Measured scan of single mutants.
Amino acid sequence: SAVVMEEGSPGEVPVLVEPPGLEDVEAALGMDRRTDAYSRSSSVSSQEEKSLHAEELVGRGIPIERVVSSEGGRPSVDLSFQPSQPLSKSSSSPELQTLQDILGDPGDKADVGRLSPEVKARSQSGTLDGESAAWSASGEDSRGQPEGPLPSSSPRSPSGLRPRGYTISDSAPSRRGKRVERDALKSRATASNAEKVPGINPSFVFLQLYHSPFFGDESNKPILLPNESQSFERSVQLLDQIPSYDTHKIAVLYVGEGQSNSELAILSNEHGSYRYTEFLTGLGRLIELKDCQPDKVYLGGLDVCGEDGQFTYCWHDDIMQAVFHIATLMPTKDVDKHRCDKKRHLGNDFVSIVYNDSGEDFKLGTIKGQFNFVHVIVTPLDYECNLVSLQCRKDMEGLVDTSVAKIVSDRNLPFVARQMALHANMASQVHHSRSNPTDIYPSKWIARLRHIKRLRQRICEEAAYSNPSLPLVHPPSHSKAPAQTPAEPTPGYEVGQRKRLISSVEDFTEFV
């Protein structure tokens, strides 16, 4: 048969007729292969192709491409040299491709048809291009793949890379869960390890502090508590009631339409708007009261037996805890006409967050109470924005700035309102402590230090009264110190430094 060459192609190359033996071998191979691939376009007849790359030819070592076609129900084999250009295909004639002069020997084609199974398996396991790669995943090629499931790999992101949580363990979102698992493993320790309690022994800490320079003076030496005195035992138990972190309780009120001037209507609300609910979820963490331990979680007086509701929101960081007394989460009882059960919590909070959804101005004093010092007013606006402002009593104007209003988005509203309420509550605590000038409020841990110092002074006084020969370590507060001759004046800087060093040991009130 003659071949018409394309323009620009090399000279004529004689194409030899395939021997009958080659056709029989390739026909047997075509019957084993699956003929249901995917359909081509209507211009080209339905056909199945599979590209198999052999590394070497037997005796020649030339890479070839073998295409199996099922045109007219008769499979045909096409061998081509890759750099050459194939002729145009037609549905009426068999596929013809040019070969190099080196394939002119018909014996070479017979060798190609009689490829060993080793070469076929190696060509099938190679990388296939384009559409033949999808075909190689079918059941027909499963014989050339190794048996057994593939090893499982770690989760992959859409980009093909490992997620960040699997790369950096410290930033993994499941870090707290692993800590819980470690605690569970520790709890399952053997009885021999049960006595080993991690941490620092208080006796060891005391020993280090006792021999430090801070205890060089007799006034700073630790003293032993009497065991037989019940009054001192009660004082030590009272110390446990003062937490070592700051605590805040903040009221949250929802004002519906037409309720801006009605205290009873505001306290009777059992739910609010959708934006109000989203605002609550951002204030803190939802907790169930019956599962809380009052000595570990500050509840601000809420009952854990269901008297004040089942849930509330709280927030904490390293040095403070805040609980929100939310009116809509507290039960509304029919027998309580004046809502006294709610007001006994909300009316005693220094700061209230008022979500004013009424469309009218909310005035300070609508919720009557002796300790309502500051109101954080949240007014929802259009386009997911809110107006946040402050209202306070006249005696609080020096501590709280009420002249600045803020426009905040719904997303950042819980954070801004919480921070403003916490700052206002700190100012309210300082303002409330002014009624007792001898006990200015600095912080909870300073209050613990003052309680310890008062307890020490009482013990020293009782020891001096029981044994008059012992001198008083600290003179009583009601006694007057003996007159001392004025010492020589020293520079102001040295006096300030000495006073600062003494105050650092005794108390921190002056620095606050």
Score class of each variant (00 low, 15 high):
residue 432 H to L: 08
residue 434 R to L: 14
residue 264 L to F: 09
residue 411 R to W: 05
residue 269 N to F: 00
residue 282 G to T: 02
residue 388 V to K: 00
residue 330 M to C: 07
residue 468 P to E: 13
residue 484 Q to P: 12
residue 388 V to E: 00
residue 359 G to N: 04
residue 387 L to T: 04
residue 378 V to T: 02
residue 370 Q to A: 15
residue 409 S to R: 02
residue 450 R to M: 08
residue 490 T to S: 11
residue 413 L to T: 10
residue 494 E to W: 06
residue 395 D to P: 05
residue 509 T to I: 04
residue 289 L to H: 14
residue 299 L to S: 15
residue 262 S to E: 08
residue 340 C to F: 15
residue 282 G to F: 01
residue 388 V to G: 00
residue 492 G to E: 10
residue 409 S to A: 03
residue 268 S to N: 12
residue 374 V to Q: 01
residue 457 Q to F: 06
residue 392 C to S: 05
residue 243 P to D: 15
residue 470 L to P: 15
residue 446 I to K: 11
residue 377 I to P: 00
residue 253 L to S: 01
residue 277 T to E: 08
residue 420 M to P: 00
residue 473 V to E: 15
residue 303 D to Y: 03
residue 232 F to V: 14
residue 287 I to D: 12
residue 414 P to F: 00
residue 304 V to K: 13
residue 456 R to C: 10
residue 372 N to I: 08
residue 285 R to S: 15
residue 406 K to H: 07
residue 342 K to G: 05
residue 278 E to G: 05
residue 292 C to M: 08
residue 373 F to A: 12
residue 372 N to G: 07
residue 468 P to A: 11
residue 331 P to M: 04
residue 502 I to Q: 15
residue 327 A to R: 03
residue 304 V to Q: 11
residue 435 S to E: 14
residue 449 L to K: 11
residue 325 H to R: 04
residue 422 L to Q: 02
residue 280 L to M: 08
residue 318 D to I: 05
residue 333 K to W: 13
residue 495 V to A: 14
residue 415 F to Q: 04
residue 329 L to K: 06
residue 283 L to V: 01
residue 416 V to A: 03
residue 235 S to W: 15
residue 301 G to Y: 04
residue 366 T to D: 04
residue 363 K to C: 11
residue 459 I to K: 06
residue 344 R to D: 11
residue 267 L to Y: 08
residue 269 N to A: 03
residue 471 P to H: 07
residue 289 L to R: 15
residue 259 Q to H: 03
residue 351 V to H: 00
residue 363 K to I: 08
residue 234 R to Q: 14
residue 289 L to P: 15
residue 462 E to I: 05
residue 312 T to C: 11
residue 422 L to S: 01
residue 418 R to C: 08
residue 427 A to P: 01
residue 382 D to P: 09
residue 259 Q to V: 02
residue 499 K to I: 07
residue 409 S to G: 05
residue 465 Y to T: 10
residue 480 K to G: 15
residue 494 E to T: 08
residue 383 Y to M: 07
residue 300 G to Q: 12
residue 296 K to E: 13
residue 314 C to N: 11
residue 499 K to F: 10
residue 433 S to T: 12
residue 364 L to A: 15
residue 422 L to V: 10
residue 380 P to I: 00
residue 448 R to E: 12
residue 317 D to C: 02
residue 474 H to N: 13
residue 304 V to D: 10
residue 388 V to T: 01
residue 231 S to Q: 13
residue 441 Y to W: 09
residue 263 E to D: 05
residue 283 L to H: 00
residue 368 K to P: 12
residue 437 P to T: 11
residue 254 Y to C: 00
residue 398 G to D: 13
residue 342 K to H: 05
residue 451 H to F: 10
residue 227 N to G: 12
residue 371 F to C: 15
residue 372 N to C: 08
residue 354 V to I: 08
residue 510 E to P: 15
residue 368 K to W: 10
residue 229 S to V: 10
residue 396 M to A: 05
residue 323 V to T: 05
residue 386 N to D: 03
residue 389 S to L: 05
residue 238 L to E: 15
residue 421 A to S: 05
residue 319 I to H: 08
residue 473 V to Y: 11
residue 248 H to Y: 12
residue 410 D to L: 00
residue 267 L to V: 04
residue 375 H to E: 15
residue 344 R to T: 10
residue 383 Y to N: 05
residue 433 S to D: 06
residue 367 I to Y: 05
residue 251 A to F: 03
residue 396 M to P: 01
residue 316 H to L: 06
residue 333 K to G: 10
residue 313 Y to F: 10
residue 366 T to N: 04
residue 351 V to C: 05
residue 499 K to M: 12
residue 476 P to C: 13
residue 418 R to V: 07
residue 263 E to H: 03
residue 394 K to W: 12
residue 285 R to C: 14
residue 226 P to Q: 13
residue 440 I to K: 10
residue 325 H to I: 05
residue 304 V to F: 14
residue 409 S to H: 05
residue 292 C to R: 12
residue 408 V to L: 03
residue 416 V to I: 11
residue 361 D to W: 03
residue 357 D to V: 01
residue 381 L to Y: 05
residue 386 N to W: 00
residue 376 V to K: 01
residue 372 N to P: 14
residue 421 A to Y: 01
residue 339 R to N: 11
residue 407 I to N: 04
residue 327 A to N: 04
residue 338 H to Y: 12
residue 292 C to N: 12
